[in-house]
Write a protein that binds this DNA or RNA. Structure first.
Length: 233
DNA sequence: GCCAACGTTGGC
DNA sequence: GCCAACGTTGGC
């Protein structure tokens, strides 16, 4: 469920609604499949250790035209690049887990732009978070594909962040290649053995460990293909 | 276009 | 709070 972007809020902070809300989005809310690490309020066993917050992300969007209620949801990395400031809000996320991850994002963190539901799924480029979580206004827009009648303005359910294009990957990293590594690492150990792209395949916004992130970045400079897989092992 | 995986909803 | 039905994601 790729977000369909729209021109980000102008240069100024406009947005009468709620300018930046950056830090205060209500943290309770429903399910969140294991993403909970909200400070303070969560009830955890004494002694439970908080995992460190995630520093890197992968965000999925569809680069090919597809119509949902007559609206094209296409938004590939080229579309992000074409936005003013090469920046866009990442609206339309309607999954609690994905939302909660977005709420953990910090300004300056990097995210892979992943192309999903297309001819060649995979990682297309890099972007960075330029605005932390704030209210996704599309949930209140009846005409929007992702309108959510169950969300009330005084307690909005859905959040979004702003991201800015950084660069294309030096070469496109196809899902098939990542999957080979994932399988290999799962069998023999390695950084991609638990990668969310495979262990939580349907999550549209996912965290990566530093090791995962760096391993994937390292693939840019390697030859694609299975030859490489052989050589490495 | 198919369909498996899996998150969400709602009945009870 | 369980769990079956339902809907969506997204690879293939």
């Amino acid at each position: 469920m790729p977000p369909k972007k729209r021109p980000r809020v102008g240069p100024k902070t406009a947005d009468p609604a709620k300018a930046d809300g950056g830090e205060k989005v209500s943290s309770l809310d429903a399910s969140d499949g294991g993403t909970r690490k909200v400070a303070g309020t969560s009830k955890k066993r004494a002694g439970a250790v908080e995992p460190p917050p995630h520093n890197h992300w992968l965000m999925k969007s569809e680069p090919e035209s597809r119509f949902e209620n007559g609206v094209d949801v296409k938004f590939g990395i080229e579309d992000l690049k074409a936005m003013p400031d090469q920046t866009s809000c990442w609206d339309g996320v309607r999954s609690f887990q994905a939302r909660n991850f977005m709420r953990q994002m910090k300004k300056g963190q990097m995210a892979f732009f992943y192309h999903s539901n297309c001819k060649e799924p995979g990682i297309a480029g890099l972007m960075k978070v330029v605005k932390e979580a704030y209210v996704d206004h599309t949930q209140f827009d009846k005409k929007d594909v992702h309108f959510d009648g169950s969300s009330k303005p005084d307690n909005p359910k859905w959040s979004m962040v702003d991201v800015q294009y950084l660069r294309m990957m030096k070469r496109f990293i196809p899902l098939s290649e990542l999957k080979r590594y994932h399988l290999q690492h799962r069998a023999e150990g390695g950084p991609l053995k638990d990668m969310a792209l495979f262990t939580k395949a349907r999550l549209s916004v996912q965290p990566l460990t530093t090791e995962e992130f760096e391993f994937v970045l390292g693939l840019e400079d390697k030859a694609p293909g299975r030859i490489l897989t052989k050589l490495l092992k």
